[in-house]
């Protein structure tokens, strides 16, 4: 159930919210929607790709976090605040309510133990709430800007499907479908005036980020591989002790 109400500094003065990453609250996903403004922070960790909303078929930009359903290889790092967590997850139980914020009072993170206060005793936003306010200042226009970016790429036929296929040392394979990236062939043939236009709009840099970020796929694969190996070693150890 959800119970979304506008955030109010009087009624919600004492409210605490746990904004940390947690598997139980939606951080355990292998793909998360992002906005173009986040690309610089994202490329140092994640492949940035396009995918389609299963309900509408519309493209959106996202960061790949894992290879299996519900797998986020970065969850621990997020919990330790070691790597960048996309805004759409950072926002926690908060929603945009016009220019203001709203909060889902039924979200388990609201009023949770270990949560952080939203307001100081004087009724001023805490640093945590301020970070949420800033997140939304980026998010709401950011989603629109990302849509414009995608629409222009589609017009130029710059988006192509890509199959991310990875083989792991335990002999298993993963094939991630429904992902799309920049068509570099088409990109290299764009007429000069279009290249200039893309550059002026800041799109060329975003395109380069997306292409460069694909190099994170093998890095992520190694990360997953070492986990798989640890699991098999653990299994082997159990077998050994059972035999002993």
């Amino acid at each position: 159930m959800t119970q979304i109400v506008p955030l109010n500094k009087e009624t919600h003065r004492a409210l605490r919210v746990d904004g940390r990453a947690s598997a139980a609250c939606g951080d355990n996903r292998r793909f998360v929607q992002v906005i173009v403004k986040e690309f610089p922070q994202l490329i140092v960790h994640y492949p940035i790709l396009f995918s389609k909303d299963p309900q509408t078929g519309q493209f959106y930009c996202g960061a790949m976090l894992g290879f299996d359903e519900g797998e986020n290889l970065f969850l621990e790092e997020w919990q330790e605040r070691e790597s960048y967590r996309p805004l759409i997850l950072q926002r926690g139980p908060f929603y945009a309510h016009g220019p203001d914020l709203a909060i889902d009072l039924d979200d388990p993170r609201v009023g949770a133990e270990g949560g952080k206060p939203l307001f100081t005793e004087q009724g001023q936003p805490t640093r945590y709430l301020q970070s949420i306010i800033w997140a939304f200042q980026d998010l709401s226009p950011g989603v629109e800007m990302t849509k414009l970016f995608i629409a222009r790429l589609l017009e130029l036929k710059l988006i192509e499907p890509v199959d991310v296929e990875v083989e792991f040392d335990d002999g298993t394979m993963r094939r991630c479908v429904g992902l799309y990236t920049i068509d570099q062939e088409v990109l290299s043939r764009l007429p000069d005036e279009v290249v200039v236009e893309l550059f002026r709009r800041g799109y060329l840099r975003l395109i380069d980020y997306m292409i460069a970020s694909l190099k994170q796929v093998p890095v992520m694969a190694r990360k997953k591989n070492s986990r798989l190996l640890k699991a098999t070693e653990g299994l082997a150890g159990m077998r050994a002790s059972a035999m002993g």
């Binding site: 389609k52 309900q55 509408t56 078929g57 519309q58 493209f59 589609l154 036929k157 799309y180």
Partner: peptide, 11 residues
């Protein structure tokens, strides 16, 4: 209905 509302993507 969805095609009328959202359209299909070219790729």
């Amino acid at each position: 209905n969805k095609i009328h509302e959202y359209g299909l993507q070219p790729v």
